[in-house]
Design a binder for these strands. Sequence first.
RNA 1: GUGGGUGUAGUUCAAUGGCAGAGCACCGGAUUGUGGUUCCGGGCGUUGUGGGUUCGACUCCCAUCACCCACCCCA
Length: 421
Amino acid sequence: MKYSIPRGTFDILPNTSYKWTYLMDSFRSFASSFGYREISTPIFEVSGLFERSSGESSDVVQKEMYRFTDRKNREFALRPEGTAPVVRSYVENHLDVLASRTKLFYLGPMFRYDRPQAGRYRQFYQYGIEFIGSDNPYYDAEVIAVLMLWLGSLGLKNLRLELNSVGCPNCSAEYDKALQDYFKPLLPQLCPDCNKRFSLKPRRLLDCKVPSCKALRGGAPLQKDYLDQPCKEHFDQVCGQLTAMQIPFTLNPSIVRGLDYYTNTAFEVIYDGLGAQNSLAGGGRYNGLIEQIGGKSMPAIGFAGGFERLLLALEAEGIELTAEPKPLMYLICLGEQARTGVANYLNALRSKGIYVDYDPDKNSLKAQFKAADASGASYAIIVGESEIAAGTLNLKNLASGEQISLPLDDGTALLGLLGID
RNA sequence: GUGGGUGUAGUUCAAUGGCAGAGCACCGGAUUGUGGUUCCGGGCGUUGUGGGUUCGACUCCCAUCACCCACCCCA
């Protein structure tokens, strides 16, 4: 019986896994220097956590969650996003008592039952940070800065940061009403999806892609005209902070985050040229979420980004962050006696962190040299019967062809020569 | 969930209803003690799967599965 991988998932094979490792390490160290510390939560949680936080009506909850019950009929879901679990952990472990400001980052797989597409998978990997504990607009800018500066540090150029404020529960309700007033007479001309959006999430009317719908929203009321005074001030200050940090952004009034918990600042990083799924990362403020999940009221802001799309973007710009690891040396043996005599030496080098390639099934000198070249090794170590007898080895520089003789010791002679200790 | 496209060797692709092939990769060899180039040799693969039409199907039809792309949604 042959098995195949579940739809919408992928294996990270050795020929690309090193890129993933590099990116993850890079994110870890970048976030760390801004004071964020790693948190890891389970891959599944009680379903109610996501229903309450993301919103019962959100697509993620309605049709994209992988749900299951365990033997005692408890209802769980594979996590579709990272913020709710982090906040759950924050509340459950009383991190708010330990410090008034909490800076967290996370990495890991998320799960959504979507139709797979370019840049969209059913199991996908996200990186993200969450800042909890202050409504200071500086932190909005800091969170965005971590994201933009990190992406910039990888060498990406064609990025666009789009910014909006979705207001607080008070003023956003008023805005929704204004939108409905505007669109109500236009309903017969709008697409069926927009007709659903009208009552469910009026804001979604603003980012429909149907041309006829696009044409009708020219005179729609703008969010910024409906922000109340505190929300407006907050947003202005966020913009000011970003400008001071020299992080370019564009205002986009139609940015609507898909999950219900967002308040005030909402942003998205767009990378054109990835196909339809052009959102590299997104996030925003969620001042009401912590209380909603059972903690005490705490302002917070965060973002999440997708590794798959990031890798696509890097590839699109031809950016090679790191090369596939290659062996430093290739061990060539002639004869059984040499193989036996060199086994311990091979282990000694490898134990000291030297990547040495070796294949005991290849016999001819020619085949072993071919393998050494193919492996990309810089040096060949050549040992035959006469070397064993003399207690020496030959070290050959594969690029220059230069060859010298060294003692077959515990590796110190070789490592010393190469300046590795 | 809806629509369009595509499934042939490890891979990239040929084969117009009439014998399933090539490049690359891989393995072996050209006096098992000095490589990369070159040369020679090495492929019966359920043509994604299951049905159907036909004397005959990789080719046409139906179904199904998978992948790609788009809608939707979002990372």
